[in-house]
Amino acid sequence: MSANLKTKPALPSADKRWKIVDATMRRHGYRSDSLIEVLHTVQEAFGYLDEVAMKFVAGSLRIPPSKVYGVASFYQFFTLRPPGRRTCVVCMGTACYIKGAANLLAAVAEHYNVKPGETTADGELSLITARCFGSCGLAPAAVIDGNVAGKLNVADMLERIKEGAQNDAA
């Protein structure tokens, strides 16, 4: 085992969020099986997983960076790119789908010129699809900036996103 695997790597920067990440790893005794829990903490703190973070986690948990990347890219919940300032998650579950979720998605994509799964060029809005929120009683549903909105039609949906932007600006 090479020397650099025996010592834990230093925090990547003075950013306090690294301490939160380190605390999670410490709580799990730096065990390699805590990888997914740790990646959740990183994403919660930084919004996404970048190379610096993945290398840091790999070094700390003593697992190959390839495995960290493998796990991070396997799970849909983890994102390797920074999210937009605002997010719109459209539920594509069965109940939402048969109540017209595809139309909602297409309308937002067209209006903001963004593809599902991507962020607008100005970094303002991320358009995301979800498997199912389990809010099927409210179909079709979306989560706009963290708030669940149900029984939507296209006009409501665009209005809600616009509202969010105005609140942001205010």
Partner: peptide, 22 residues
């Protein structure tokens, strides 16, 4: 915590995930 993989509902995949793997 899961991380958005439907296949993890399958028991052996779920166990792999708890162990920190794909």
């Amino acid at each position: 915590l899961g991380a958005g993989a439907f296949v993890c509902g399958e028991e052996t995949a779920l166990l792999a995930s708890i162990e920190g793997n794909r």
